[in-house]
Amino acid sequence: MAEPRLPESLIQSLGAQLTPVRRLPPPWLRTAGWLLAVAALALALLWHYGAEHMIRRWIAEPDIAVAGIGAVITAVCAAWAAFTLGVPGRSARWAWLPLPGLLMWVGASGLGCLRDAVLPGAEVAGVHQSVDCLVFIIGLSVPLSLLLIVLVRRACPLRPVLAAVMIGLASAAASAALLEICHGFAVAATDLLTHAVAVAIVVLANAAMGGRLLQPALR
């Protein structure tokens, strides 16, 4: 079957508009760029609060340290998945990448809750402190999400909702990890629930906006 002539003229006019473009850096490099911003925030918090309190808590309750490391791994993997999903032709299976870190984060936090239930007497977050946590996590997640959105939309995510979920997860996990630095009490059920609510809010807000926010090239 002969190809119709229509694309010919379009190809010529696209050729006439061709300008050299700067290739998008690979996803891992773009992930590293975003992590630099997170690291800068971590340094600022460490400078303000000091590491001593955090390390003392980690020695007393190692599962908090494990949960914190899980959150960091989740943040790194979810950001990497978001940047990779921004490139057309990459597999949707990248969305599974944050799962191990997520299991470690949630699992270790859950163990902390369980231990507090078995061994009462640990300092447990009250409703007031939980609200502070929520404000802290959302307050950090929103700018971190916005930065990720700006970076991801330079590419062309063909699955915007999946990419938005990765963005939400990455920024919520990163802010939960940052919260470790200035957290004043043990992980408890209310605390874990606060994290879950904050993550859900960020993920849903991102997912709801994803279609419009992430695909300027497809409009």
Partner: peptide, 14 residues
Amino acid sequence: TLITVHRVRHTYDP
């Protein structure tokens, strides 16, 4: 598709 390719050609990794 051709127009989209034109807009996102910077995302192609050779």
